[in-house]
Nucleic acid binder design. Structure first.
Lengths: 168, 168
DNA sequence: CGTGCTAGGTTCCTTGAAGGAACCTCACCC
DNA sequence: GGGTGAGGTTCCTTCAAGGAACCTAGCACG
């Protein structure tokens, strides 16, 4: 099968999904960020094959998203903790959670609530414009070719489209 | 292989990744939301196998994320457009893009820039608290069990953790 | 009217990753 | 020196991803 490698593609979404676009990886990161950090706990929690879990963790460590850390000396015990790069995946998880809550939560409501320690309130995450603070949607944003943009594999048509948009 | 079905799991992230946690789906949604909507254009742009593209599109239509729409009568031509449910995946894409920009953009900068039509500025997306508007990070939020929470497969350990947290 | 082009898929075959379960190893503990 | 628990590896089977060829319907043109 040799899943098509997307890491070379000139698109940050492609680069991110190359790592993250795997059903298990998102759930592993959710667990690690929430506090389930040990191999056996992850295996039990996710119901994932131990082989696949080992492979995913190794990948995440290699990518610098997690580090394996000794939390006890005698006996030696290790667990996985998120690096800064890993913690910054949190917004992706919140966005997924928001969407899942909105479209799949049953009558009983969402399975997990979120408390923001900054303001103390139960809340949800919104995707906002970094400049003006207003919510961002697909309809009021425009993608434009950026400085690092090459039209490479994975963005054939998209590249042309963005270029034409930049001119028009 | 029979990818473990996650849709029954009491976690919105799991439900969302069940659909979205696939390298191609995110890229297809990126393209569709940006304006690449025809089968052949998608196939060319992504370099995806036509078979897999057809399967993904069918899945996305079945999930109500895309609809197949006739845009020309003679000859009959159809394309795929995002529903509201699909357009609301945009924040997930922006979060992925942000992360990819931050950690993988080369010296030349990000491949795509974003213009917010609301304020007119080039911008990026931030993940903010819906209540107070401040940015949300993994460190200043706390997950708590919600009304729809059952401890089901996929949240064994997590469920216990959240419960203990709710009491402590 | 037959040949060709384009959009939009299907079919066929091969490979390789996901699942599952058993097995392994090391350090402790009694 | 047998048991236990953490943290993986190994082995085997199955099923979907990739790739490329093939198919079909509707023009369109000479």
């Amino acid at each position: 099968m040799t899943r098509t490698p997307l890491s070379g593609v000139a698109c940050s979404i492609a680069r991110a999904t190359d790592l993250f676009g795997d059903a298990w990886t998102a759930l592993i990161m959710r667990d690690v960020l929430v506090g389930v950090t040990r191999f056996d706990d992850l295996a039990e929690d996710l119901g994932i094959s131990r082989k696949v879990l080992a492979a995913r963790l190794a990948r995440l460590v290699a990518e610098g998203v997690l580090v394996r850390e000794r939390y006890q000396e005698r006996p030696v015990r290790e667990h996985y903790v998120a690096t800064e790069k890993g913690r910054e995946l949190y917004p992706v998880l919140l966005a997924l959670m928001n969407w899942g809550d909105r479209w799949y939560a049953g009558e009983s409501g969402p399975p997990v609530r979120l408390r923001h320690l900054g303001c103390g309130e139960l809340t949800s995450a919104v995707c906002a414009c970094a400049t003006c603070g207003e919510p961002l949607t697909a309809d009021d944003t425009l993608e434009l070719p950026g400085p690092g943009g090459r039209t490479g594999p994975g963005t054939q048509v998209l590249g042309r489209l963005l270029k034409s948009r930049a001119h028009g």
